[in-house]
Amino acid sequence: MGWISDTVESVKSIKFREASTQLITLGLVVTSALVIWKGLMCITGTKSPVVVVLSESMEPGFQRGDILFLHMNNDPIRAGDIVVINIDGRDIPIVHRVIKVHERQDTQETYYLTKGDNNDMDDRVLYNHGQDWLEKKHIMGKAAGFLPYAGWATLIMSQKPIVKYILAGAFGLLVLISKE
């Protein structure tokens, strides 16, 4: 009957208290990141408060890898504003500048035309076939602030997903094995 007591001993030797402390720490890190992100969503009023510039169409103002802070409130969008737009049927949002605005007298519906500062043509070539104007529903947010270079990590991670998994794994491991 020696093997039962051996098993009991080995189970007892696992430090449940330490293990659970580390699990809770990991949980705290993940949830606080989530809380910050959701909090930003509430404050800024847009579904994506921070975007990384992916294209060269707004050079030299915005370069690839720069970060934009968006906000969305009841202030109307006017010509000159830099907006993040989401065209129906496309995954990737576009950061461009509004160059034309027409606002209806009766319905308050507003029609926008956008263009990238570095592009020769306006964005009608990017819109869906037959679509001449953007409407309010296409606009995710208005750029309010700017931080250069800070988005490069995201850019690398989205291009080479393996880097993402290695980083996430390493980070998780670090949190689990670190003894404080």
């Binding site: 103002g61 160059i99 034309k100 605005v101 027409h102 606002e103 308050q108 500062d117």
Partner: peptide
């Protein structure tokens, strides 16, 4: 200041539209 984006817009209202903004010219001042 990294740059100044400047543009000239024609702005007017019509019976149908309470606001029309049409960019006529723009430029980047480096």
């Amino acid at each position: 200041t990294k740059q100044v984006f400047v543009f000239l817009a024609a702005e007017y209202d019509t019976p149908k539209n309470s606001l029309n903004q049409i960019s006529l010219w723009d430029g980047i001042i480096p």
